[in-house]
């Protein structure tokens, strides 16, 4: 059944003229023939006209890669989501509690979380990512050890939590106490790091739609994170992606979980406000 669907999709792909090194395509993203995802949106006001349209990275991938994300049975990222679902229901740590003991059904309690994170946290007095929030529960409420940032169980859990918001539109807050963090993230976004002196904007704002060698540049949006990459065959966190992009400028990078990447994640997420959540997305 699934196999048939895929073959039909690739047959269609073959019949269509190749786009070559063109901009984003005009396909429509519907996951499991059910969840409609907004993949092109009006830019938020705080973008100050930097983009005339906000576009999901899905539009910059080829039809085969796009198709994998459209069906949970084909999407290998869903295996991580399933793993995390099992973890969700398993008691761990000195308090003998599972996530489910406090949060019940993740489909209800975690719905909408991804769409509003990273988020300023009153109690912590800082902006927190989903992974930080999960570790807060593990260390402060479960008596369990914190998970390593962007690694196995943490990324699976983030993907599972993110998947509960699929189709909802990104809407992170950047005002009030979040503002200084957002400003810091913006500064990082426009800084030309490394020996190649390239900023995020050099590639993802000035040159999206263009080819840099064999890579079709997208806007570098995070609405699909964590994302399953065919290249390394695993779920990848946004901070790990940022790290790879900065490394590619021949720069000294920042680390996943660092203050710099937390601020950058907030800023990049805000650039994608309006885009539908795709987690776990599929990219090459």
């Amino acid at each position: 059944m699934n196999f048939k669907m895929l073959s039909v999709v690739s047959a269609v792909a073959l019949a269509m003229p190749t786009l070559g090194a063109a901009g984003p395509d005009d396909d429509t993203l519907i996951i499991n023939e059910e969840i409609e995802v907004v993949t092109k949106a009006e830019p938020a006001e705080h973008l100050d006209g930097a983009l005339y349209e906000v576009i999901s990275g899905w539009h910059f991938r080829n039809d085969d890669t796009q198709a994998i994300e459209m069906d949970d049975f084909d999407n290998p990222g869903m295996l991580g989501v399933e793993n995390a679902m099992a973890t969700w229901n398993t008691a761990e740590g000195s308090a003998g509690k599972s996530c489910a003991d406090c949060h019940g059904d993740a489909a209800e309690s975690m719905k909408g979380v991804k769409a509003t994170y990273p988020k300023y946290d009153e109690k912590a007095g800082t902006v927190m990512t989903v992974q930080m929030k999960v570790n807060e529960c593990r260390t402060e409420r479960m008596g369990a050890e914190a998970w390593k940032y962007d690694a196995g169980p943490a990324i699976d859990m983030e993907a599972m939590i993110g998947s509960q918001s699929r189709g909802m539109q990104m809407n992170v807050a950047i005002d009030g106490p979040a503002k200084p963090f957002w400003e810091k993230g913006k500064e990082i976004y426009y800084t030309r790091y490394g020996q190649l002196e390239l900023s995020c904007a050099s590639c993802h704002e000035q040159n999206y739609g263009n080819m840099i060698r064999a890579d079709h540049l997208s806007q570098g949006q995070t609405n699909g994170f964590p994302t399953y990459r065919l290249k390394n065959a695993k779920l990848n966190g946004a901070h790990s992606r940022f790290k790879g992009c900065i490394r590619d400028t021949r720069a000294e990078t920042f680390s996943p979980g660092s203050d710099e990447f937390i601020a950058l994640e907030l800023y990049v997420a805000s650039r994608g406000n309006g885009l539908g959540v795709e987690t776990p997305s599929v990219r090459n």
Partner: peptide, 24 residues
């Protein structure tokens, strides 16, 4: 321009050791 400078050694922000992600 986004084109890199191929024969310059100063003025970089967080220059790295080639593509390792580590400091120069």
């Amino acid at each position: 321009t986004v084109m890199p400078a191929y024969y310059r050694v100063d003025g970089f922000i967080r220059p790295g050791n080639a593509y390792t992600g580590k400091a120069a």
